[in-house]
Design a protein around this nucleic acid. Sequence first.
RNA 1: GCGCCUGUAGCUCAGUUGGAUAGAGUGCCGGACUACGAAUCCGGAGGUCGAAGGUUCGAAUCCUUUCAGGCGCACCA
Length: 548
Amino acid sequence: MAVLVQNGLRRAIDSGHLKTALPQTIEIERPREKSHGDWASNIAMILAKEARQPPRAVAETIIENLDKPDYLAEVEIAGPGFINFRLSSKWLSDSLAQICELGDAYGRSKVENPQKIQIEFVSANPVGPMHVGHGRWAAVGDSLARLLKAVGHQVESEFYINDWGNQMRIFGASVAARYREILGEALELPEDGYQGHYITDIAQEIVDADGDKYLRLKPEDQAEEFSKRAYKQVLEHIKKTLTEMDVSFDSWFSESSLHESGKLGESLEFLDQKDLTYRSEGALWLKTVDFGDDKDRVLMRANGQTTYFAADIAYHKEKVERGFDKLINIWGADHHGYVKRVQAAMTAMGAGDNRLEIIIGQLVNLFSGGKAVRMSKRTGEMVTLDELLTDVGRDASRYYFLMRGTDTPLDFDIELAKSQTSENPVYYVQYAHARICSILRHAADQKLTPIGKKANFSLLAHESEMALMRELADAPSIIARAAAARAPHRLTKYSQDIAAAFHQFYHQCRVVSDDEDLSFARLTLVDATRQVIKNVLWLIGVSAPQKM
RNA sequence: GCGCCUGUAGCUCAGUUGGAUAGAGUGCCGGACUACGAAUCCGGAGGUCGAAGGUUCGAAUCCUUUCAGGCGCACCA
């Protein structure tokens, strides 16, 4: 379409009717208002000043020089100088035929510059069960990965396991304290210890398996032993929960492996050789200020221990070495203060300014019957993702997590989700899919099945049929834009738009009727709708049921 | 004090990167099943896009100021 306008424009300029330069880009957009056609261009208004002509006159000149291909039904000037294009029914028929032909692949596309992208998300600390907030990043990250693949990128998802440092020690000590309590000793929880009930559960499992075998060890050695053992258990649990959510990771990367393999030391040395570090007050610092941070950051403490930041640098260096063009990290808003220093470190390492893309997602606020639920891992006062999945279900949870943009906080009311699940739009969309399957079953009873491209699409001329076909034809561009904007939540909106267009069509047009040709055409349209709903729901990670 | 995010219908939120009369859902009022699923559809009421300036043909969108809310400002991870 843009090319069409460009050609017309060039002709207008070449012939001297328009005194202006050919613009770099010509914007073509879909008007909000249906009466404004299928596509519209604002180019005349942009050029009006330079051409020293009123916008409408410019538009007229452009239209006079325009080709008229058969997919175009009408071109008109509207409002202050918009050029509106109305597509012919042939164009809609063609896109319908394309859906039939491509099936599950419909909606996918090929970006101009396919990249090798790594997307890292969730990365929950393996010291307890995942909470509801993790669920949001699991849903968003997994859908984004699917979305990026759908537009032709090579995508690898990764879970970073923070299995090193203070928290692991405290975790082990907490389990050890509960272990001793079960075996009759007085409870002495470590400072800042974890208090969730699952800690006791883990301790109980150890008692059940090995009895009081560890009781003779010193408390520090118990903690050491248990942190390794318990963390594996917790990690398995995390994996299981993610599987239940239908979220899968291509790789699991362990923080402690950076320490053990020496990669951490190597990256410190690397920075040192580039003269980016210095010693002060007994600690080793990185000159992050030189790269946009507010202050320099400590890599190694005065006590000789490296910081989490140092490990993260090694981690990101390793990622770059693995050859990704783009690294996407999804972090909760409580980590946004950390963005600058990691970006600074990336720049310092010479990884390129745009290599790392950090998506900061606002947090999930949990409510129960309108009252805020306080969550704390330390005190164990929390609602786990498992509980949520059991209560609300996978489909509703994933859809709900995805309905809002990531930079808006998500209020999740458990009671509302439990008691009024029919209000959740996911059912509206799934119902449309189930209804279609029902229609297809009914048609099969009448010995009718959709016949794909061979159907006579010119019979689909009703207003609601055209609207539905237009909606379906949008899929590739909606998906492409959602991927580019890293905005999987747009898919939920789109899925509702398709369902709405279908339900409207359903109420106005009878699909299976005495008119066999019309029935074939409408069955094909209905089947194409089913296909598109299914494809979009798959990107969201929600099932498309045949019955409900 | 500094930084990031957010203020849009009674409520929960979209708004396709600056377009035309700002849209959904929910709630409220009123309608539609003797044919393919009423978990559906149709109609109505409901707005100073937090506020004030600015940029331009044109602003919810960009800039400045300001008010309100959330989050963050470690030799924790």
